[in-house]
Design a protein around this nucleic acid. Structure first.
Ligand SMILES: [Mn+2]
Ligand SMILES: [Mn+2]
Ligand SMILES: [Mn+2]
Ligand SMILES: [Mn+2]
Lengths: 223, 223
DNA sequence: CAAAAAATTTAGGCCAGACTAAAATATTTT
DNA sequence: AAAATATTTTAGTCTGGCCTAAATTTTTTG
């Protein structure tokens, strides 16, 4: 009956999920770029996923693709693996948060449900990964993230860092160095109309820091 | 130049290594049985591995196959991964020694050299896995195992368990229960000519245990 | 030592998942 | 609203890794 969900398919579903998150449906080209695959190949796979029994995606020619309930469950399974693995690699094997992504990218497809459960237990059932990203629950629902970009704060506002974008290792190293990490408490000292720079104070640090929008749009905070 | 060593190839090389260990060259049929693949498919792969640049196996039609130096290095790399992973799963995630094999079987192909190094360090650079099997060194040489079957001991001989065969989970559970585990000290109390049974005493235990050859041939000891 | 049995190889095919080139459709610009 | 451009799909191809059936070679046995 139900199709085998290969490693390739898992990667497609995961990236469709992430593209769907930032609004609307995932385009063939965006997927191709993320997966590092020719657009023609993506079209072929989307047709296959849409015709699978049960269908994993909803796909109309030239109109992008979204996940079905089944597709979403499969995606969340992989994302849960990925984020638990990142947490495990950092906590247990001393990886730094800019190194874990690539390793988790491969392991996520291979670990058993038993491995997943043992990791979760060993880590005390964490709700966020090292970058602050929410970990889907064991019954595969995605908790709601209330955070918004640091860039949206203005003078005198105070907030806690919840999560940072994890796709640029260099940015991650920089953020760690300056102390912009999950749970850090931030107060905005001033905002520049012209370039969008924010001057911030991090609780427990001596001096202020000035951050451009290239940084403040990648950091997400909650009041 | 040098061929990509896929997961499939890694499995072929690993099993060829193990068959070569128990004397001579690996036969097509034995490999097929171990890999759960049709013999015809094995032939195809062996031809490919023999014609690879550099060659990974030495293969003459109808005469079985052995590893080249290159093939052996690749095999030892996978075996090192496997045995470190088994040790890690037992020590860090609380797996029991009869559960680890299947999980390690998949992970061995996927972890990075960095992961390998971090595991080895975290475990204190172990030399044997939970079943007592020797772990290839970081420079990919296999230490020499001096142990011999428990079945070869006779009355009044004393020895230490070094390793047990890991391919039957039920046997592993039984061995754990009766205390026949690596480092256990054994004295042979008597030997039965007829059925080959050994009556043994394990240091620290009250009562003697009688073991048949089905067991004593799977347990390896050293004086 | 010839016949039967077992082991192995050859031949031909299939499927997943990629690719390129060309065609079709959608979007943007003028 | 037509032309130019960008996006997406179709068509055809390739490779890895497996399969079955049939042919060949090796080994065992009467
Ligand atoms: Mn992946
Ligand atoms: Mn992450
Ligand atoms: Mn394997
Ligand atoms: Mn083992």
């Amino acid at each position: 009956m139900s199709e085998v969900i290969t490693q390739s398919i898992q990667d497609y579903l995961k990236h469709i999920y992430e593209l769907n998150e930032n609004g609307g449906s995932a385009s063939t080209n965006d997927l191709a770029a993320r997966l590092n695959i020719a657009p023609a190949s993506v079209t072929g796979m989307l047709q296959k996923l849409a015709n699978a029994k049960p269908p994993l995606v909803i796909y109309k020619k030239h109109q992008g693709v979204t996940l079905t309930k089944n597709g979403e469950k499969a995606a969340l399974e992989v994302i849960r693996h990925h984020r638990l693995l990142e947490t495990f690699l950092v906590n247990t094997l001393g990886y730094s948060w800019d190194e874990v992504h690539f390793e988790a990218e491969k392991l996520e497809h291979v670990i058993s449900e038993d491995f997943e459960a043992r990791m979760a237990a060993a880590l005390g059932h964490p709700t966020r990964d090292p970058h602050g990203e929410l970990i889907p629950t064991v019954d595969l629902t995605m908790p709601v993230d209330e955070s918004r970009p640091l860039a949206s704060l203005r003078t005198d506002e105070t907030a806690t860092v919840r999560r940072v974008s994890d796709d640029d290792p260099a940015l991650l190293r920089h953020l760690l160095e300056i102390g912009v990490v999950p749970e850090a408490k931030i107060t905005v000292k001033s905002y520049s109309e012209f370039d969008g720079n924010l001057t911030i104070k991090i609780e427990g640090q001596k001096s202020n820091i000035v951050l451009g929008t290239a940084v403040t749009n990648q950091v997400f905070v909650e009041k």
